[in-house]
């Protein structure tokens, strides 16, 4: 957790050299394309392409291992809840019902199992490009990219501040909890009864809030003294000229959006069920 807020993994792949705003466009196009469909064929193709791109960026696997685990655990739980709460939901989509497993109050059918597989693949399809984006974009480049795709620079700067202050807030949080524990306020299981622990945890909120409000004062005064916000536009230290690869990926992203909308409207309209 110590590296939180700076997930960036330095490297020299094609994605590291690509401009942040183009990666943002690719990320948006990929997300929109995934959102449009509920079709396993589309997701398998996209997932394979995405994994290929992820491998090409050569992000060290131990950095992204945890995220893969979170994703797997999430999907296992999501699947379990869907199967338990709506065991026959798949039939509503396909109109057929092939019973597989009796769970007492209802029967899980094959259509639902296939639906859950499709949904899980849909969620996993979102992962590769998202990882590419966070792990290959330098945090300082992030703000200039946001500004470049049309977000007002004051909001882009606010996003920049947010990313920059997460490590500070993290250490603040640690020192507050440590000093409270030294005074005998317990946070862990076994330290105090549950209700008391909830009260103890919420008591962190007040010092966290006050230190943040103080920080807001200090930082905004410092920025004001340096003339932040005087002009309607600003330049960015990390902004670079677009290269050939940026134009190429930008065009491909727009084609991806257009192509997937066309596919959705004319070819693959609903849920795909082969059996």
């Amino acid at each position: 957790m110590s590296k939180m807020g700076t997930l960036y993994a330095p490297g020299n792949s094609i994605f590291h050299r690509m401009d942040g705003s183009v990666k943002m466009l690719l990320f948006a196009a990929w997300t929109i394309a995934t959102f449009l469909f509920l079709d396993l064929r589309v997701f398998v193709v996209m997932l394979l392409v995405g994994l290929g791109l992820l491998l090409s960026a050569k992000i060290p696997f131990r950095r992204i291992r945890v995220i893969f685990w979170v994703m797997i655990v999430f999907n296992v739980f999501n699947t379990a809840f869907i199967l338990l709460i709506t065991p026959t939901y798949g039939s509503e989509l396909t109109g057929t019902s092939t019973p597989v497993l009796n769970i007492g109050y209802n029967t899980i059918n094959l259509e639902t199992l296939f639906y859950v597989l499709t949904l899980t693949t849909k969620y996993i399809t979102l992962l590769p490009i998202s990882l590419l984006f966070i792990f290959t974009t330098h945090p300082s480049q992030f703000a200039s990219s946001l500004n470049r795709i049309g977000i007002p620079y004051k909001i882009a700067y606010a996003v920049n501040i947010a990313f920059r202050y997460i490590p500070d807030i993290q250490s603040e949080f640690r020192s507050i909890t440590n000093s409270m524990q030294m005074r005998g306020i317990g946070f862990r299981k076994g330290d105090a009864p549950f209700i008391q622990r909830v009260k103890n945890v919420t008591s962190i909120a007040f010092p966290m809030l006050y230190s943040s409000l103080q920080r807001i004062e200090v930082v905004s005064n410092a920025m004001e003294l340096r003339g932040f916000g005087k002009h309607r536009r600003r330049t960015w230290y990390h902004m670079e000229k677009y290269q050939g690869i940026d134009y190429l990926v930008g065009t491909l992203s727009i084609l991806l959006i257009a192509g997937s909308i066309w596919m959705k409207v004319s070819v693959l309209k609903g849920f795909w069920y082969p059996l």
């Binding site: 004051k154 909001i155 700067y157 606010a158 996003v159 920049n160 501040i161 947010a162 990313f163 920059r164 202050y165 997460i166 500070d168 807030i169 966290m208 809030l209 943040s212 920080r215 807001i216 004062e217 930082v219 905004s220 920025m223 004001e224 932040f228 916000g229």
Partner: peptide, 13 residues
Amino acid sequence: TLVVVAIGIGAAL
């Protein structure tokens, strides 16, 4: 500027 910083630090929090 205060609002910009408030958004940033509030979002971090």
